[in-house]
Amino acid sequence: MSAYERVKQWNTFARIWHIYDAKWQNPFDSAKVISKHIQGLHKPIYHPLNNCGDHVIVFNSRHIALPGYEWKKRAYFHHTGYPGGASWTLAWQLHEINPTLVMQKAVKWELPRGLSKFGLMARLHIFPDEEIPEELLKNVTSQLRQLRPVPRTLDSYSDKEIEEFPKVMDYPNDYILK
């Protein structure tokens, strides 16, 4: 085997570590992308019996964004097994308790049903903030693209930028600025 063939072999079968910034991202849309990379569905050598999935590190999971009023409309169901043991936790309450759980459950639901889920979920590493352990971060060789642009607040623009931005509307002559 030539050196080129050998490197090609390594690159094909090596486990890649991806990193994903979840800031202002919808966890349910991101879960579709993340679950594909965890299973290895993006690779041409994919086969259900082939263990070719990658690792994904998700950070800033505390700063995920849900559309509209979904923080208070989405409920997470749990039953203890005893009579009257049902409970419904709203998404914002769950996120307050643990800022990684909404993201984790979103990816878990996206994976195929069965016992392979446990092995696949072990390749997902979620961190609520920007602090990632050094031993995980040194493996990272690839970054997943964000699905939504991170919006800029009005405070992040300087006064000069706001002033020089093209104006759509002018005040009438007799308007007193407030």
């Binding site: 919808n26 998404a91 939504r148």
Partner: peptide, 11 residues
């Protein structure tokens, strides 16, 4: 307060 402190976006 409550759910309003988390990021959200609109369609």
């Amino acid at each position: 307060y409550g759910e309003k402190k988390f990021n959200n976006y609109w369609d």
